[in-house]
């Protein structure tokens, strides 16, 4: 395999300007019509209705919803725990990815499956299994059920794969020569990490962290059994949404949903900025 090495100076991979003209044949156009209609019925219109619902009440609904101490506390708890979990994932996820890529030992393949279990396991089952180890009948004698720690634990479980899976392929692509070059230029292991490896991983860590945070603030299934949903203690935002729905208050439910969405967007923007900064100051 010969890598292309003779590209002229200054050419970065530039995408061909996409032609605006449609290349759809008649059957393809019909297919597209059917597909988009289904997608709109299933996803787009219902989601749009949430913003209409929330916006329909005007700012009043938002203020009222946020003014509700129980809801505000639930949102606060959710964001705090999701942030904390994301922080742990940034460190542990990167470390796990490192071990998966760089270390060799018997049974490593099994580890790949274990990492993905939180993705595949139904969330209610996730809550249940965590409850069996860290609940009232814990064989370890650790009981976090019905506390804010249970939220942390459940989120830690369901968000485990995000950073690992984001960092792993980038780490695999990283040439060992680059680290050797840094070493031969006198950089210590720590300096190589901070100035060479970390900047290369930063974008993928950030994208994994974003996904982990977004998943964290929207988590529901794994918490219902584990956290006990105690107001002001262990009740999270999606449980509040659920209660609002049950109490026939879709406007408030939509308001919380929109607030969560805004927080998630803010997180995406912030993490992008952080990752750019880390990359630039390598």
């Amino acid at each position: 395999m010969n890598p292309v090495l003779t590209e002229p100076t200054g050419t970065t991979r530039r995408r061909r300007p996409r032609q605006k003209a449609s290349t759809l044949s008649r059957p393809a156009a019909i297919g597209l019509g059917v597909g988009v209609t289904w997608f709109s019925i299933l996803v787009l219109i219902p989601l749009a209705l949430i913003s209409f619902q929330a916006a329909g009440g005007g700012w009043g609904v938002f203020l009222e919803t946020l003014g509700n101490a129980q809801t505000a506390s639930a949102i606060g708890l959710t964001v705090r725990q999701a942030l904390l979990v994301t922080l742990v994932n940034v460190v542990m996820g990167t470390l796990i990815a490192w071990v998966l890529v760089r270390d060799r030992f018997w049974g490593k393949r099994a580890l790949e499956i274990i990492i993905d279990i939180p993705f595949a396991l139904p969330t209610i089952v996730a809550g249940l299994v965590l409850l069996s180890l860290y609940g009232p009948e814990s064989p370890l004698g650790v009981n976090v059920a019905n506390t804010s720690h249970s939220v942390f634990l459940a989120l830690l479980f369901v968000t485990l794969p995000f950073v690992v899976r984001a960092v792993e392929p980038v780490l695999m692509e990283l040439e060992p020569e680059v680290e050797e070059a840094a070493a031969s230029l006198g950089a210590s292991t720590f300096t190589t990490w901070r100035r060479i490896i970390l900047p290369s991983l930063a974008p993928s860590i950030a994208s994994g962290a974003t996904l982990s945070f977004a998943r964290g603030i929207s988590e529901y299934g794994s918490l219902v059994l584990l956290s006990g949903n105690l107001p002001f203690e262990s009740e999270v935002a999606s449980v509040r949404i659920f209660s609002y729905i049950e109490n026939d208050n879709p406007a408030a439910a939509s308001a919380v949903a929109v607030i969560l969405l805004t927080v998630a967007l803010a997180a995406i923007v912030t993490l992008n900025l952080i990752s750019q900064r880390v990359t630039r100051h390598g």
Binding site: F39, V43, P46, L49, S218, Y220, I241, F242, I245, S254
Partner: peptide, 24 residues
């Protein structure tokens, strides 16, 4: 369209339920 197709993965299941409830 390509971007929107990924949307369902980043929406909370509870919000998805709410959305369908509001529509249907």
């Amino acid at each position: 369209l390509n971007t929107l197709l990924d949307l369902p993965l980043s929406v909370s299941p509870v919000v998805i339920g709410l959305a369908l409830l509001l529509a249907y």
